[in-house]
């Protein structure tokens, strides 16, 4: 019996929304992956990611996910 891979609840904001995968709310990861690696799988250029949140707290791209986290990604936003 194969184990179900861990998943994260992925939230992509603003211009990233259009790259949100269909399974964003249960996005499969490998436990211990960094957010930077998750971003790679989404084919979003790392330089475009301005803000990363895990479970409501700002983190750096090297923060790890293990499954069950809510992960939010923002591009730069500056309008008024």
């Amino acid at each position: 019996m194969t184990e179900t891979p861990p998943t994260i609840d992925l939230r992509l904001f603003a211009t990233f929304a259009s790259r949100s995968p269909a399974n964003a709310s249960r996005y499969p990861i490998a436990s211990g992956m960094t957010v930077a690696q998750v971003i790679d799988t989404l084919e979003i250029p790392a330089a475009e990611v301005k803000l990363i949140f895990i479970n409501g707290v700002r983190v750096q791209p090297d923060a790890q996910v293990h499954g069950g986290e809510r992960v939010g990604l923002f591009p730069p936003v500056g309008g008024g």
């Binding site: 603003a14 211009t15 330089a47 301005k50 803000l51 591009p75 730069p76 936003v77 500056g78 309008g79």
Partner: peptide, 15 residues
């Protein structure tokens, strides 16, 4: 929120 000022690549964002 926006990263360090000296890293800003563009005056505008996703807007």
């Amino acid at each position: 929120v926006h990263g360090p000022r000296h890293h800003l690549k563009s005056a505008k964002g996703a807007e």
